[in-house]
Design a protein around this nucleic acid. Structure first.
Lengths: 351, 351
DNA sequence: GTTAGCACTCAACTCATTAGAGTGCTAACA
DNA sequence: TGTTAGCACTCTAATGAGTTGAGTGCTAAC
């Protein structure tokens, strides 16, 4: 069977109505509302076909129809195509871009929290945002300073001005000269290198170059190397998890508990972020409907994610989690608006 | 009316039974179970008195009784007194202390997460732990290094080896000599000082001592001072928020939403921590029952908090949030066990 | 291909009934 | 005077019958 034009129209009408009301949609409702002007009987026939084709479902024999995952997928694809056009058209009217009220915050952390909050408040769904991540982490600066007699503090700055610290306890005191030499050695060897490229052989080479006090120096180099390699946990900020209680289909104990767990433990959100980043080449925004979700605990939700770019090669992810019966239209434009806002904000003011 | 011995016994019996079953307790149940050997009629009379005195409640005329906040309070006080004794007795048998399986983690953050997790898994309630906080923050070490021509990175170490970083952009280049002087100046002036004691006059004095290049130096000093003063947000780790869904009295949308919000936004948990720390002089563990809770969103829960000591003057808070019908006995001993475990762990291995 | 019409289905609601747990009170007892 | 047996009473929760109404599927006519 084929999804002809009339079927499409009816399907979209069903989904839109369902999104508004949250109740199964009957044939009469459609026959009245539509510009199609078909009788309810005709609609019924078409609906039966749509059920066969898997676009809609019947909770029970005498109820109306609700969209299936496949139905939502059709709707969302349709919507995304429309958006695409719209965006292109609106490209010129650059104003009205600041509806979301994000104040430039001094601290990245605060900014991200604010963004998450703004998202959840504006959409009434749960929201998350991951701190920006560098595709390639290049070392920019390393500095060792003696803090106490047998304690060194290492400061490691990577591109994008992310700073790592490490306190190193050493077995025997180190003299100023050695420390200076060590600083030189580390900086000349490692600066500009991508963290991924720092291999054991490079570390070994440095140790060899160290010469006489090889003992302490090796110790320190190892500690620094370890600290550099230790990858930070991906920081994720969430907001509005409680919004899920607004949607009865998610608010029963079982499901709510799963979603809340995902939000609290962050592990699953981290997976979601990586999934999104790995697809980010395609098109900015991704929509996962129900079973499509890469995250187990969100199989009953829809998840909308997008990548924002802070600078060349520095990306983060934002996400909205809500019921399948989500206002996709609004969510898509909110996310779109937000990512552009973030992009332009960062392009202007690098911190 | 007075709470005589028999009333006490009956009250405790009611509460214990209720904690086990979660159902209103009737007079017959008590008359059968007890060693008191009183008829249900007598129990009924006593129960009526207990209702008058506010220790128990009747959900409706023909139902059994459930404890009121006041009743729980009585029970908990009783229990705490017992515990006190037990602890003193057990002081000698030092073994069996390691039931909770906390592995010494390299990173404080990981350790804390683990503790929270352990708590929530062991008790089946929601758990939180705050990162240790220093009552007095003494500066230990300050180091400025030039990273790029007009960019300095400041490393500030406070007692307990907490490290703050700050990147400072300066208007004009700074030469090595000035930088060295500045480092000396900052360290000699500020080292050992409590952050709270760093006043504007001290900052002004440093600026005066700076001499010639007052411009840049003032700039840097201000940035450092600001960074020192900027107080970190209190870090709080939570685990097992989803446990609340196991208790029907907390699992309805309204209440669950409130509790989840408190856990997500952390603000209220922060308040809870400060509240606890401010009372920590009294006795280790505090129990807030229902309305007693310092946190608005937890008026339907019981909250058990305790302070752990990492070192002289360095405290953190752990907390358990569950239904009023909580297994106080278990929670109290779990927390007790955990705090001692943490205390001894830190006493041994300072990081 | 479309539509009117009708019999049928099913969830959701209402209402009455019942069962059972538990109470409060009274009168008798030790 | 405190304790107890006994009984009438109360109230929730569970059950089941009956009703309503939205919506379907199918057939026959247009």
């Amino acid at each position: 069977m084929e999804l002809d034009d009339r079927k499409k129209k009816i399907l979209l009408a069903i989904i839109k109505t369902y999104l508004e009301t949250g109740e199964p949609v009957g044939s009469r409702t459609i026959s009245k509302i539509e510009g199609l002007s078909l009788s309810s009987a005709t609609i019924r026939n078409e609906m039966a076909d749509l059920v066969d084709m898997g676009y809609i479902l019947q909770p029970h024999t005498s109820a109306g129809r609700i969209p299936s995952d496949k139905g939502y997928r059709f709707y969302v694809d349709q919507l995304m195509a429309e958006k695409e056009q719209e965006i292109e058209e609106r490209e010129r009217e650059t104003d009205e871009m600041k509806g979301l009220l994000i104040e430039k915050a001094d601290k990245m952390e605060r900014l991200l929290k604010q963004v998450a909050r703004s998202l959840s408040v504006n959409t009434n769904y749960a929201a998350m945002i991951s701190a920006p991540r560098y595709n390639v982490n290049r070392l920019k600066f390393i500095q060792l300073s003696r803090m106490e007699e047998r304690r060194i503090v290492a400061v490691i700055v990577v591109e994008g001005n992310m700073i790592k610290n490490q306190i190193i306890d050493i077995d025997e005191p180190i003299d100023d000269e050695t420390l200076l030499k060590l600083n030189m050695l580390l900086n000349t060897t490692l600066n500009g290198m991508a963290i991924e490229d720092i291999s054991l052989s490079i570390i070994a080479k440095m140790k060899r170059q160290a010469g006489d006090q090889a003992g302490i120096i090796a110790e320190v180099i190892d500690a620094v190397a370890e600290s550099i390699k230790a990858d930070e946990e991906l920081e994720i900020y969430t907001s509005g998890a409680n919004n899920i209680f607004k949607y009865p289909e998610l608010a029963d104990n079982q499901k709510a508990s799963e979603i809340i767990t995902a939000f609290e433990e962050k592990k699953q959100l981290t997976d979601l972020v990586y999934e999104t980043l790995s697809h980010s080449d395609e098109k900015g925004i991704q929509v996962y409907i129900g079973e499509e979700s890469p995250v187990e605990n969100m199989k009953d939700c829809s998840v909308v994610t997008a990548t924002y770019e802070l600078d060349e090669g520095i990306h983060g992810t934002i996400g909205i989690i809500g019921p399948k019966r989500m206002n996709y239209d609004k969510v898509l434009s909110t996310i779109k608006k937000l990512t552009t806002e973030l992009d332009t904000m960062f392009k202007k003011t690098q911190t």
